[in-house]
Amino acid sequence: MALLEANDIHTFYGAIHALKGITVTVDKGEIVTLIGANGAGKTTILNTISGILHPRQGTITLDGEPIHELPAHSIVTRGVSQSPEGRRVFGRLSVAENLEMGAFTRKDKEGIKRDLEHVYELFPRLKERRKQLAGTLSGGEQQMLAMGRALMASPRLLLLDEPSMGLAPILVDLIFDTIKEINAEGVTVLLVEQNALMALSIAHRAYVLETGSIVLSGTGQELLDDPEVMKAYLGMD
C-alpha cells in the first residue's frame, strides 16, 4: 500500500478551481517530485495534503486512513510535516525555539533531543546561530531552518515546497544532498521544485502539473529523457 494516496482531489480558492482532479501516490521510502510552471497548483497540493486547505472533492489517505478532513495540526501528529514555500520561519523566535516549535506535537524528550542533534549535524550553521532570532538569518540559513524545523516533527512523510528557491548554487547543492541524506535515513519525501533538472535527478518518480491537472508522470529518468519536458520545464531544446 502506498504511504500517501491523493485521489481525484479538487481544491478551490473561493470560486477559483485550483486543483482539477489530482491523483498522486507516494510510496514509502520514495522521493517524489512535483514540477510545473508558476501557478500550476504545486503549493496548493502540498497545502491540501497538510490540511491548510481542504479538498471539495476527492480523498487523501495516509497508510490507508483518510486524512483530508483533519485539521492541519492533527495531520502533523500523524507524521506529515511541511517546509512551506518562502520558508515562513518565526522571525521573532530564536533558531532553537523555531526548532522546538517543529517538535511541538511530540512528547518523547529523548527523541527530540536526538533529532535536534541530528538537525545540527545536517546544518552546523544552525547550531552556531541557535540563539539568534530567525528573522535576522540570511535567506539560505532560513531555508535550512525551515527544513530542520520540519524534520523536528520526525515525519514519515516530508513535504518540501521549493527548498532551493533564491539560493546560491553551492547552497542548492547542499540542500539537495541533504534531501537525499534524509531520504536515505528512511524519510519519504514529496518535493516541489522550480529547479526541475535537479529535482528530477534525485527523484524516484515525478509528476508534471499544468493548471491544476497532472499531464505527465514517470520515473525521474524518464522525464529527464522526455524531449517535451525538457523543452517546457527545463528551457532546453
Binding site: N47, S50, G51, I52, P71, A72, H73, S74, V76, T77, S81, Q82, P84, R88, V89, F90, G91, R92, L93, E97, E100, M101, G102, F104, T105, R149, A150, A153
Partner: peptide, 17 residues
C-alpha cells in the same frame, strides 16, 4: 512560544502541529 508563533504566522504554526 506557540502563542508567539501563531501571532506571527497562523498557517506556518498550524504546519508545526
Amino acid at each position: 512560544k506557540a502563542i508567539q508563533a501563531v501571532s506571527e504566522d497562523k498557517d506556518a504554526a498550524a504546519l508545526m502541529g
